Amino acid sequence: MVIPVHDVNPARRTPWVTYALLVANVVVFVFLTPGVVGSVTGESSLAQLCDLQAFLERYAVVPQELIHHRMPRLVPTGQTGVGPQGPGCVVGPPGYDKSPELSVLTAMFLHGGWLHLLGNMLFLWIFGNNIEDRLGHVRYLLFYLVCGYAACYGFSLLDAGSHEPLIGASGAIAGVLGAYLVLYPKARVWVLVPFLVFLPLRLPAWIVLGLWFVLQAVYSTGQGVSAAGTVAYVAHVVGFAVGALLAWPLKPGTPPPPEPRGVLFGRRARRTW
């Protein structure tokens, strides 16, 4: 798997919406999500875990709730207790009203750990500015939300009986990647390729994002991963496909990215004339 670092595709306008999304995701994770300290140290107390379970139950997408539009009778309360099997998290009737449809929006700003957050923000930082530049600020925000909703509903329809919370901006960002592949397939992307050491290479976007999509599609079938159930790869595939379809009508009027000259694979190329 290659790690994108930077694309050679300057934008004409400041990507204010992309910046706002980046800040919002970081703020929600650092200041509003319980157990962030434990996610850094790797040590979480039972109280922190119970608090996080209750938080996710309230603000994350639960496929069964979303598809059947009904709340469970018992949810984690965030409190700890001692039962027949020892200490654990207390469950009880929900003390709040939850809109499953609105939870799709709140879930887009929740992440399960620092790697989850930073990985998503890296892709949004690199590829989001050009899609915002092409669509404009308002249309880009709507596009982002539509892709996120489509990804959540697509995953939930295929696993309508699941009680596991679904979180992350991955579905919406996958839509951004799909649009980038359609609009700027020849844009050059600097990537790091792990091969003994990290090798810097400049590859066309169609290779970088095409490979990413193929891997997500393969992983969504359970092939090549040991814990496919912990990552909603299907949501990535759906978000990517929706983003690509929405961007397709804009392809004829999209100017091509500039072709970089004089630099090849991280070194300045020598002229032969």
Rank of each mutant, 00 (worst) to 15 (best):
K251R: 15
P93I: 03
A172V: 02
Y19P: 06
P194R: 04
V234H: 01
R70F: 12
Y59E: 08
V26K: 15
L141N: 06
A232I: 02
G81H: 12
S156D: 02
C89R: 04
W206F: 13
D133Q: 08
A232T: 03
R268F: 12
G83H: 13
I173N: 06
T41C: 10
G161I: 13
Y59R: 13
F240E: 02
D159Y: 14
A169L: 12
S45M: 13
L52K: 12
L74R: 14
R270F: 11
V5C: 01
V62Y: 07
P100D: 06
V17K: 08
R70V: 11
N130C: 13
P72T: 09
V8T: 02
Y96V: 15
H69W: 15
C89Q: 04
A179Y: 01
L141F: 14
K186W: 00
S170M: 08
M71W: 05
R134S: 09
G239K: 02
S220F: 00
A150I: 06
V30M: 05
L135S: 04
G266W: 00
F240H: 02
E65W: 00
E164L: 14
R13W: 09
V138D: 11
M121I: 12
V27H: 11
G92P: 07
L199N: 00
L203T: 00
A172T: 02
L117K: 04
Y184E: 01
